[in-house]
Structures are given as C-alpha cells and as structure tokens.
C-alpha cells in the first residue's frame, strides 16, 4: 500500500498522505445494515478480516490431516500448533492446554492479519488493509483476553483473586501502597496489550508510506535528489519491509505471550 500514489484522494497537491491507508471505506451495507441502531456496514477492514479468516481456515484445514507421517503442510500446521502449545505449557503448565483454542486463534488471527496487510498487492492494484492497525480491533482482542483472565481468576479463586495485587512476601505496612500500584498496573494491561499491537502495526506502515513518499518526491524533483534521497530511501524501505515482516510475527507472539502470562496469573495465583 506504500505504492498507492495514484489513488484519487491519496495525492493532494503531489503529496503522499501516510495515514490515508488506514481509512475505512464502506463497501456495501452502509445504509441499512445495523444492529440496535449501530451501523455495521461491510468495510474494507471487514473484508480483510474475512480474508484473514478464510486464509487461516484454508491453511489449518489443509494441514489438519491425521497422517502419522506428516506432509509439509501438515508439518507447518502442527509446528504452529506445537509452538503455541509450548508457549502455554511453559507459561501456565499442564492447565494451559484448555486455553489452546483461544490462544491459537488469537495468535494466528493477528499473525495472518499483520502479514496479509504487508502483502505488496498494490502492485496489481489491490490495496491491502491491516485490520490490526486499528485500535478498535486490537482493543476488542485485548478486552477479550482481559475478560477471560478476570472470569477465570474470579471463578477459580473467588475474592482471593485480589491477593494478586499483593505480591508474595510484601510487608504488612507496604500493602496499602503496593495494592493500588499493582491494581493500576493490572488495569492498564488491556490498554497496553491493545495499543502495543496497534501502534507497532501503524508505525511500520506509516514509516513505509513516508519513505515511499521520499522516493517519489525525490524522483520527481530531479536526478540529483533521485540519487541523494530517492535511492537511499528505497534501499531503506527494503530493509524496513524485512523488519516489518519480523514485527508482524513478533507482535502476534507478544500478544499471545502476554495473554499466556496474564492467564497464568488467573490460573496459578502466586
């Protein structure tokens, strides 16, 4: 999407708007699709979430064979499953198995959404949309994880779950100070969880767009600026693209890892 310079509203007086790529454009259902008065139009964001879902279902469905000796595809799906399973096992222990469906869905959904948003499909005129660059999306995912932590925590430990805010070995006099601090740090979790992913994805895409703007403006301004600004910016973009692929994986991993860590608090109260 960093190459979309010829789009109608992207180019205003020859400049590239680096955040235009995050604009949500309704595709259909704008007028009459609504639930309880809230419009639920099918947008480009929804389209890419659906694409993510379909790709994910095809990927896992294609690899969910039960062969004793796995093929490549099955190996890939089992590797991914084993990765998430190890994550849960190492953070929560044997009790972590029951969260595998949720954490696997979370990790793969974010990973695929991140990666699909990075595809250079603009070369063929399709503009990928990164759903995870919207905090409405990452926020819902974060609230979901946080809600599960709260539900599991209170269901398993009742009001004893509040002892989470008093770390083991805290002197009695320190409890009034430590408790609010721990409570606040606990309540900040869903925000940090959701914002981290949103900021990381948005920053990468903006950076690529800004650099591509440098390439185009530099090239348009003449041969001198082409070599001075255009070429270095383009080389930097190649590196940033590789970095963004890494970030796409790391952010999905961090989201899943932190969910595991928080679930561990709820599952095995210290």
């Amino acid at each position: 999407m960093f190459l979309r310079v010829t789009g109608t509203s992207t180019v205003a007086e020859g400049k590239v708007d680096p955040v235009h790529q995050f604009t949500i454009e309704p595709l259909f259902g704008t007028d009459h699709w609504s639930i309880a008065g809230h419009n639920i139009a099918f947008t480009n964001s929804a389209l890419w979430m659906v694409i993510t879902t379909l790709v994910l279902i095809v990927f896992v469905g294609g690899g969910a064979k039960k062969a004793q000796v796995p093929g490549r595809w099955q190996m890939a799906v089992e590797g991914l499953t084993g990765f998430v399973d190890t994550l849960l096992q190492s953070n929560i222990g044997d009790a972590g198995r029951k969260y595998l469906p949720y954490v696997f869905s979370l990790f793969t959904f974010i990973l695929f959404a991140n990666l699909l948003g990075l595809l250079p499909l603009a070369l063929v005129g399709i503009h990928p949309f990164t759903a995870t660059s919207h905090f409405t999306v990452t926020g819902v995912l974060a609230i979901m994880s946080f809600a599960i932590v709260l539900i599991v925590g209170f269901a398993k430990h009742g009001f004893h779950f509040f002892s989470l805010f008093v770390p083991h070995g805290t002197p009695a006099v320190m409890v009034p100070v430590i408790f609010p601090i721990e409570l606040i740090s606990f309540l900040v979790r869903p925000f940090s969880l959701g914002l981290r992913l949103f900021v990381a994805m948005m920053a990468g895409h903006v950076l690529l767009e800004v650099l591509s703007g440098f390439v185009i403006s530099g090239t348009n301004a003449g041969v001198g600026t082409f070599f001075l600004a255009g070429v270095p910016s383009f080389l930097l973009m190649i590196g940033i693209c590789a970095l963004e692929l890494l970030v796409a994986g790391i952010q999905a991993y961090v989201f899943a890892l932190l969910t595991c860590v928080y679930l561990n608090d709820a599952e095995n109260l210290h």
Binding site: I24, P26, S34, I35, H38, N39, I40, A41, F42, T43, S45, A46, M49, V50, T52, T53, L56, I57, V60, G61, L100, P101, Y102, F104, S105, T108, F109, A131, H134, T136, V137, V140, L141, M144
Partner: peptide
C-alpha cells in the same frame, strides 16, 4: 466502531469455533 467490532467478533468467532 460498531462495524469494526461486529465484523471482528464475527471473524474471530469463526476462527475460534472452526479452527480452535
């Protein structure tokens, strides 16, 4: 926001129930 939340829940729900 309503559209975003709705379609995310639909898609993630599909992923969770079909895959998970």
């Amino acid at each position: 926001y309503a559209s975003q939340v709705f379609w995310l829940l639909v898609c993630f729900g599909l992923v969770f129930f079909v895959i998970g």
